[in-house]
């Protein structure tokens, strides 16, 4: 699981008003300007990149609230 890959995807699909490089792994992405709609694009891109599918119980803001949280969710899904 590469945090760098998540950062790349976040840069491409997160539509954040700030540079992803300035964010720490545990920075709150919603505070950084991640919108609900951008979360959907981000989710779909992560699913393609890691060949996973977020199940219904993972569809919450908590799953996508930080780079670290995303990484943990992906690791859990990959088993």
């Amino acid at each position: 699981m590469s945090l760098e890959t998540i950062r790349e995807i976040l840069t491409q699909h997160g539509r954040l008003p700030v540079d992803v490089k300035t964010l720490a792994d545990d920075s709150d992405l919603y505070n950084a300007g991640l919108t609900s709609l951008a979360t959907v694009s981000l989710m779909l891109a992560l699913e393609d990149a890691f060949n996973i599918e977020f199940p219904e119980n993972k569809l919450s803001r908590k799953t996508f609230e930080s780079i670290e949280a995303i990484s943990e969710a992906i690791e859990e899904l990959k088993g």
Binding site: S36, V40, E56, L59, S60
Partner: peptide, 14 residues
């Protein structure tokens, strides 16, 4: 709409 919509719905309820 869709799975992303479930997230939006949860946030609206919260």
């Amino acid at each position: 709409f869709g799975r992303g919509g479930k997230m939006m719905a949860a946030s609206q309820r919260e």
